[in-house]
């Protein structure tokens, strides 16, 4: 069912190929009786990328582009519709819950909303010790306690704060608790889904710095999901730009930010507000098309300033262009 070569590159910790995710919209009884076809939201439409060991790879895009859905499918919170997810040499896309168990230990997640991501009825120490005790990372309560205090210290808490509940902390502090929880299983790979977008600017910098320090200390690789281009640029080695469930451009972060090739990447960079721009570019017109009725051609065609006839009829494939890949018929020009 999978015709890719068996030789998997040990350089890559995660290889995602042709990942597809879609959701059927619930139909009411009346719609069913009327025989209306089921509407399907095409959230992720064949996404491929790889994360090297020790690397930060980012997926960037606007809301509804499928970046979070991709992340949640990779960690198997959602079942992939098709495609493969090779993690540390194993295709986990069809793993059962019990097969996933050893993988879960190595793959953790940091969430977007610091208020919803911690159980309000659990003490901080229990939030951090639960994964350790479950996976047998600590041999007993004493060792778990010791590890928990060490993790709390690393993310900047005093030991006596371990007995408190989440509501006694600020957003930035909660996010650091979430990071400590993610680290509690000694993971090699962390999916960070918009980890700083809910935080104040000055706190954002603290959390980003902490995440980067931890990468060195724990030899972590990150899949970073974000909409804020400046944040992405700051932390990322390689980046994939997503639009309507497709990756439209992918490659080295500095190269793409310095010289975007896909018209959408260009527009995205031009639209991001900056502190030091003299003249603002003409903003992009129009809205993102509906993911229920994908356009037959290029997903970006209806808003693209360089659109030609070919773009509305034929979907462009990802092609290699000077060390990066771009899905545009005319990206060379």
């Amino acid at each position: 069912m999978d015709n890719r070569p068996e030789s998997r590159d040990p350089e890559f910790l995660l290889e995602v190929s042709d990942l597809v995710q879609s959701f059927a919209q619930p139909r009411g009884i009346l719609d069913r009786l009327a025989g209306k076809p089921q509407k399907v939201v095409h959230a992720v439409n064949g996404v491929s990328f790889a994360v090297r060991r020790g690397e930060v790879f980012s997926l960037v895009g606007e809301s509804g582009c499928g970046k979070s859905t991709t992340a949640r499918t990779i960690v198997r919170l959602l079942e992939p519709k098709s495609g493969s997810i090779v993690f540390d040499g194993e295709d986990i896309s069809k793993f059962s819950a019990s097969e996933m168990m050893p993988v879960r230990k190595k793959m953790q997640m940091i969430f977007q909303d610091p208020y919803a991501s911690l159980n309000p009825r659990q003490r901080i120490k229990d939030i951090i010790m639960e994964p350790m005790l479950f996976h047998g990372i600590a041999s007993g309560k004493d060792e778990a306690h010791e590890k928990m205090f060490r993790l709390l210290d690393i993310v900047g808490f005093r030991p006596e704060q371990a007995d408190r509940y989440p509501h006694q902390f600020s957003g930035g502090q909660r996010q650091r608790i979430g990071i400590a929880r993610a680290l509690s299983t000694n993971p090699a790979f962390i999916v960070a889904d918009e980890p700083v977008s809910a935080l104040d600017v000055s706190i954002q910098a603290q959390v980003l710095n902490l995440m980067m320090d931890l990468r060195d200390e724990f030899t972590l690789s990150y899949l970073f999901i974000a909409h804020d281009l400046s944040v992405v640029r700051h932390v990322t080695e390689r980046v994939g730009i997503m639009y309507l469930g497709f990756i439209v451009e992918q490659g080295d972060c500095d190269a793409i930010f310095g010289n975007p090739m896909h018209p959408y990447t260009k527009a995205l960079l031009a639209a991001a507000p900056t502190l030091d721009r003299i003249v603002a570019a003409e903003p992009l017109k129009g809205d993102v098309p509906s993911p229920i009725m994908l356009p037959p051609g290029c997903p970006f065609a209806n808003r693209c300033p360089q659109r030609r006839d070919l773009c509305t009829t034929t979907r462009p494939q990802l092609r290699e262009h000077s060390g990066r890949i771009v899905a545009c018929h005319f990206s060379g020009n």
Partner: peptide, 26 residues
């Protein structure tokens, strides 16, 4: 649908402990 339930799933907990320990108290 809150993220703390996702976090519990990512630990590897099965539905029963998630319901009892995480959902029920809330």
């Amino acid at each position: 649908n809150k993220e703390y339930v996702d976090a519990a799933k990512l630990i590897g907990l099965s539905p029963f402990p998630i319901i009892v320990r995480h959902v029920l108290p809330n």
